[in-house]
Design a protein around this nucleic acid. Structure first.
Lengths: 340, 340
DNA sequence: CGTTAGCACTCTCGCTTGTTGAGTGCTAAT
DNA sequence: ATTAGCACTCAACAAGCGAGAGTGCTAACG
């Protein structure tokens, strides 16, 4: 079933209006709009059809119509064109983010804040995943009797660190020599390859077996799994400004989403590497997101790294602006993280 | 003006009741309580007196009475005894926290979550400040052409890291030698002393002047200032469960507190190293906290380090339980962080 | 003289009722 | 096919009312 032009136009007008006002839209409102040359009665007939087709819903008889998820889906699929961003705004964004130190977390944090600020919705940024990145350097630094800090530097300059236990009597020089050796062996390899190297090369090094086992274990943990710190949320309370969350229960329900960063990261990563993915209302699996839309985008870091950024807002969000901003922000993050 | 025993007892009864119900307390309610042998009329007279003295307030004529900030102040000053914690609960807390890796952030995070969980209020934990701590180790690790990661390990095992720029042609071995040298010179000294050492010892090392200047600068920044990551918040949305925040505006207002971790840390640190400090309602400077109470405690790390933990809840919070829990949690954190 | 019973008074809360206004659906005229 | 007209529906708001909780005051009591 395909909609004729007029139905299409009316539906678009309704969505445009509802996105701004968050109030059910009546036939008069649409009729008054410039560019629509029909009386309320005609609009009503069309609206009635659209309702039957599942694009509109009525909160109650004698209220206006409200777009359904299906309508938003049609809207984003067929009507979404990228917006322009003023050079002024671009400047502001780049300034804000590039003022940071080169630390990945700082940049991620800044990006999340900025994204929340320009869209006025809640933003989520996941730090670049590291699986396919290659190791550039491994270093062990003594911290105290029996513990050392292990630092892994990867291509793209992303670092991970973790405490591991080492023999109590090992010297600083010894650790350094070990670090150099590890770096020499592992440099340029991916985690997959590292596993094999460990199995092959280090099998006979009985002396440091336990230590190296620890190193491998930490690598697996840190480089495979997304640590909770790698998810950054910006503008958590932004959504409380929208009337759909003026009910305290809905607000509470919504805020629980952010209690588990792991689940959040899981959600975001479901976009399967798509440039931009939009999930509207019931298209979300998570219970608490049934009344929200989730827009996610992927950004690249270097050749093999990639991360995700997302915006969570009401289903009636301003998709055009959000998508535009996400695209741009993705570029900026890529540039910042790869360029370093 | 000192209250006689009966007034005192009645006031306590009112507060106890209000803490649980959050509803204005009437004279009948108090009269019915076991241990009070007076009729509602008598209670009313006393209540009237207490109101005149500023301990009670009436939301409106013919509602019950509500304790004022002054009443809570009296309550915590004179009636607060520590509670007992069941060994079972102690066990649960220690298990949860000690299951973490030794990383400071992890422990802080776990402590904040646990504190929010056992009190059902919002918790804030500030990582130990490092000023008076002594440096144990400095290490530079190459990250990419022209940048290195600088890691400072202090007594108590607290680490700080930062990226600094280094000459592009410096070798890994060279950086290691430099690290060893720095460690040798700075080990066991406080930041104050480090400044002097830099001025004295390294003055003539013209070659690495720029590099060392960078090292010093980062040290100052990282070790002096509290980085925003050092403040961890647990159970942000816990307070939304209480009726005093069922109004969305109040909730929003309250949630803005957590937007700036710096300001939050500033607030917490105002307890001046006191074991336990309680600020009730209007005793707080921050506008958004006028209807809340803030309970803070200091914990020690090693000999010279200290950090703060805090609970934010409604003025009618269960001070007894909160204080008890804070005391215990402070001990646990101390043990975890110092013991490593 | 402290304590208490009794009573009039006040104010919130929840319920019902009426009114208004926005918006619809249908029908008949254009 | 479009539109004007009209009857109808329903949420939202305001007004009015009774019930209930709680107070303050006064007078009686031990």
């Amino acid at each position: 079933m395909v909609l004729d032009d007029r139905k299409f136009m009316i539906l678009k007008a309704i969505i445009d209006d509802y996105i701004i006002t968050a109030m059910p839209v009546g036939s008069r409102t649409i009729s008054r709009k410039s560019g629509v040359g029909f009386s309320p009665a005609t609009i009503r007939n069309e609206m009635s059809d659209l309702e039957e087709l599942g694009y509109l819903a009525q909160p109650h008889t004698s209220a206006g119509r409200v777009p359904s998820d299906k309508a938003y889906r049609l809207y984003v699929d067929s009507l979404l064109r990228s917006d322009e961003i003023s050079t002024q705004e671009k400047q502001r964004i780049e300034d804000y983010i590039s003022r940071r130190s080169g630390q990945v977390e700082d940049i991620i944090r800044a990006a999340a804040d900025m994204l929340a600020d320009v869209t006025q919705y809640t933003s989520v940024v996941v730090a670049p995943r590291i699986q396919t990145l290659r190791i550039r350097r491994v270093q062990l630094v003594p911290v105290s009797e029996g513990t050392a800090l292990m630092i892994v530097v990867t291509s793209a300059g992303i670092m991970k660190d973790a405490l591991i236990s080492v023999p109590a009597d090992i010297s600083s020089d010894n650790l350094y020599a070990l670090s150099e050796m590890l770096t020499r062996e592992l440099e340029g390899h991916t985690l997959e390859e590292v596993r094999q190297i460990f199995a092959r090369v280090f099998r006979d090094m009985s002396m440091n077996r336990r230590l190296l086992g620890g190193v491998m274990k930490v690598m697996e943990e840190k480089l495979t799994e997304d640590a909770p710190e790698d998810v950054v949320i910006g503008g958590t309370t932004k959504l409380l400004n929208y009337p759909e969350y003026s009910d305290i229960d809905k607000a509470k329900n919504f805020l629980t989403i952010f209690e588990s960063k792991e689940r959040l990261a899981g959600m975001l990563k479901k976009n399967g590497g798509m440039e931009i993915s939009i999930r509207i209302g019931s298209e979300n699996e998570m219970e608490a997101l049934q009344n929200c839309s989730l827009v996610t985008a992927t950004y690249r870091v270097g050749k093999h790294g990639s991360g995700t950024l997302g915006i969570i807002g009401p289903t009636r969000m301003n998709y055009r602006r959000v998508v535009t901003m996400m695209e741009y922000m993705g570029q900026v993050i890529s540039k910042m993280l790869s360029g370093e």
